[in-house]
């Protein structure tokens, strides 16, 4: 039996909003450690990895590890039926062919129950090496979202370059070009507004803005986003997931293969 209860059900709604347009079908791996998911987009250009730790749930029971394959747009449709303040409970019996979602409104006597069909998916897992990166940047997530949205008006790709204590996002296209330069901020009063840059070596690399704009759909999950870059490897865009108390619940990490000059 698998059962996971989340008082702040909105977190799960936000997680689905952040992945459903990138990945159509995926499997949640549920173990005593928590729930995780890894999937590539259909073009195999990007990969998303989600982790929700067991102790972040308000109740978590997983007697034996289960894989819950599902259509994420179906799950997202069902989660839209839950209110932002609802408690969400996921339940799956061992060897069942569906997952049950129970939504409970706060201070009300209303409960709703939905079922989503499970699917057998051929999951391919990619091993992601845990390596140090040349550049790590932490910045406000809304700023990253804004930059990606603005630059997509100019071109399809953004060139990210980092030198000394600044990071530069540049795009060019038929209409002209655009550049956004961000400098490291002094220790800010509000940590969520700060920009911090740690650089081992300068870097310059290009990425498709279409994917970055998909990743930015995770913005409501976290006030800060972390970008990690090294020469000739995928960019990592990470949003940590915290609950209202600020406790660490897990993360969404997106990996994006670079574009190279032919």
């Amino acid at each position: 039996m698998f059962e996971a209860k989340l008082i702040q059900g909105a977190i799960l709604k936000k997680i689905l909003d952040a992945i459903k347009d990138l990945v159509n079908e995926a499997s949640w791996d549920c173990s005593s450690q928590g729930m995780s998911l890894q999937a590539m987009d259909t073009s195999h250009v990007s990969l998303v990895a989600v982790q929700m730790k067991a102790d972040g749930f308000d109740k978590y029971r997983c007697d034996r590890s289960v894989t819950l394959g599902m259509n994420l747009s179906s799950l997202s449709k069902i989660l839209k039926c839950a209110g932002n303040d609802d408690t969400i409970t996921l339940k799956a019996p061992d060897d069942g062919d569906k997952i049950t979602l129970v939504f409970e409104a706060k201070n009300e006597s209303e409960t709703s129950e939905y079922e989503v069909k499970l699917m057998n998916l051929d999951s391919e897992y990619l091993g992601i090496p845990d390596t140090p990166y040349s550049v790590n940047v932490k910045m406000p997530s809304h700023k990253f979202q804004r930059i990606c949205r603005d630059l997509q008006q100019i071109g399809d790709a953004v060139t990210i370059s980092c030198a000394k204590d600044s990071i530069r996002f540049a795009a060019k296209g038929d209409l002209g070009s655009g550049t956004v330069n961000l400098c490291q901020t002094a220790s800010a009063d509000k940590p969520e507004d700060s920009v911090s840059i740690s650089m081992q070596e300068p870097i310059i690399q290009s990425f498709a803005l279409k994917y970055l704009n998909h990743f930015a759909k995770a913005t409501p999950l976290s006030p800060q986003v972390s970008l990690s870059l090294s020469p000739d490897v995928p960019l990592v865009v990470e949003y940590s997931i915290t609950d209202d108390d600020g406790s660490d619940f897990g993360y969404i990490r997106y990996y994006l293969a670079p574009k190279i000059d032919e």
């Binding site: 590539m40 195999h44 250009v45 897992y125 990619l126 091993g127 790709a157 990996y255 670079p258 000059d261």
Partner: peptide, 14 residues
């Protein structure tokens, strides 16, 4: 032009 690389060129099947 720019060539888009695939993610599975970087990360091998586990």
């Amino acid at each position: 032009g720019n060539k888009q690389l695939k993610i599975d060129c970087f990360f091998k099947r586990a």
